[in-house]
Design a protein around this nucleic acid. Structure first.
Lengths: 328, 328
DNA sequence: TATTTCTACTAAAACGTATTAGTAAAGATA
DNA sequence: TATCTTTACTAATACGTTTTAGTAGAAATA
């Protein structure tokens, strides 16, 4: 059914080269006559020719595809982010090959290998732990790489991210401004730099204001199982708490769920989330948050990556996107 | 940097065939001696050979990739669904090429063409309007196709879906059982079969119970702009309403947002959503819903598609997944 | 010893495309 | 008319792999 250039050439009694040149709009430059050009074009249209892009990529060395590697395409940050990326790249005639690592380095390795084998022209990566070596591998293959959201400082790459420290300070100030004098921080037991930055800003705020720091580290592994009771116990123990600052939206959701569980013991202090969520403005009490502006984030990632692809790999830079404080 | 089989062969003073056969674990079958096999294997490992999967696919006709086409990878149904699909296929050594149509047939056409050109081995499609022709095209190319969630009845394909009518009846009965005697239906102005099925079940329920049918059709286009006020006016006009049944979760969210807007006029009747949402159990009043079991849905889609790929295209069948009624 | 069988490989073709060097025929130049 | 240009193409090679048919030499058979 699907005809190849070879077949078309035979059926038209011309050479493969002619057909290929015409199809790729190089008829003029190759001095193909207008008549023949039209004959080929018409026939190509008639039989509904579709190029085999594998062969094409093999011959040209270009795949017009970029890889997007995230932790979880199903979550409320990466999903919409991926959509923006796809939209932006569609306009530039690129396609996106996405994949989720689920935080598993083995998955990440497989995905990266797969993408390199597929000859993606560039990779957009939100790294999880222990990915330094893979990043190096990508760079060794001369494949442009842009890292976003998280970063492993040991490998120098282009890095697009929000200002975690500054945003975190904004959050603290907001909580203070609405009357919280003893709010705690709930974060994840992980040394991801963005998490550390958020925590450190909180600590800095404590130091500057003299507020006592109260920090809960929830386990990164099996958060679902242990997280809720740990949080409940912690809140029960620290009765002087009058506000909670969650360093991610999924932690905040977990907080909402666990603090609601014991019907009578509803908390009655403000919650603040780093990262927005579709329904935060519907909840009671309303959740204020830091919102990562997805579109600017995606735009910057795409712009930087495309530039790398166009002009070749350049020396790594950092790109900081500022966040919005959403008061509710 | 990246060596090819050809280079490796030269450097080892053997033929390309030998290297290829060894790499593909066909050394024994091709009577390559153990010693040579080891020599090749060692060298291949040493130089970190990675096959060029474009060339491989071109030669074998297999891409080990399947396409997943949804409306919006960023939404709370398709995102997590996609993750399940990816996980399931990863186990079978397949990779997923996803893409979002955003409901635009032109996008859909481009995406399908792209996927066919990339020689995906099968396609999983949640069709939007006017996709009949594309589905035909896919089938013409002899590419296995499984349609899910929505369906255009004009083209016969494998179709995995939930039982919309039955689920809708369950929803109605539930609302009745908790005391609603005059609940209305809020749906979308679209002739997608699954929406019609949900509506028709409601009508059937009305007929059987004698309840007066009250249906609001919100515009599919620019829902965001017009939806809220339309809904507000409708609810204000129909004062006898004592419950609302939304045919999708995004309509329910819209409902929550618009009915909350006028602070004083909070509604005080139950809402029911077709499709769950991560935060529905946190809202007040709690939202009961029909939940589409994502995992069984994904499992069935993948199973059917892989079977088609394995055994060749077979005559279309329907697969119905039953839903869960979540009472809150 | 002449023939067959086995061993351990390799040569060659194929997948479908892009690209560059080459060429035959016609036209222009001197 | 002999040479140079231009026109309008095509042949050949390359991309990196898989696969099948083939082959030289050794071993076994008769």
């Amino acid at each position: 059914m699907a005809k190849s250039i070879k077949e078309i050439a035979q059926e038209l009694n011309v050479s493969k080269s002619t057909v290929s040149l015409v199809i790729n709009h190089k008829a003029e430059q190759a001095r193909i006559s207008k008549e023949l050009e039209k004959r080929v074009l018409d026939y190509v249209k008639k039989v509904g020719y579709k190029p085999n892009s594998l062969a094409k990529s093999l011959a040209t060395g270009r795949s017009n595809t970029i890889g997007l590697i995230v932790e979880n395409i199903g979550d409320s940050f990466f999903g919409p982010f991926a959509l923006y990326v796809e939209e932006l790249l569609r306009k530039k005639d690129y396609h996106v090959l996405y994949s989720s690592t689920l935080g598993d380095p083995q998955n990440a390795q497989d995905i990266i290998d797969f993408m390199l084998e597929k000859k993606v022209e560039g990779i957009l990566l939100a790294p999880t732990v222990d990915l330094e070596e893979h990043q190096r591998k990508i760079l060794e293959h001369k494949v442009p790489l842009v890292v976003f959201d998280r970063n492993s400082p040991e490998v120098a790459t282009h890095y697009v991210h929000i200002d975690n420290g500054d945003s975190s300070l904004k959050a603290c100030s907001h909580l203070q401004s609405i009357g919280c004098e003893n709010f705690g921080l709930v974060t994840i037991d992980s040394d991801q730099p963005q998490m550390l930055a958020r925590k450190n800003a909180y600590l800095q705020f404590c130091e500057e204001t003299g507020m006592q720091a109260r920090i809960l580290h929830l386990p990164y592994q099996n958060l679902r199982q242990k997280g809720m009771t740990t949080l409940q116990n912690w809140v029960a123990k620290n009765i002087e708490l009058d506000g909670l600052f969650f360093t991610t939206n999924y932690l905040c959701i977990l907080g909402l769920k666990s603090l609601r569980t014991e019907e009578g013991k509803n908390f009655d202090f403000p919650l603040f989330s780093f990262d927005d969520h579709e329904l935060f403005d519907l909840l009671n009490p309303k959740i204020s948050c830091i919102r990562q502006p997805l579109e600017p984030l995606a735009k910057t990632c795409v712009k930087v990556l495309l530039k790398e692809i166009d002009r070749g790999v350049s020396s790594p830079k950092e790109y900081v996107i500022s966040t919005d404080l959403i008061k509710r």
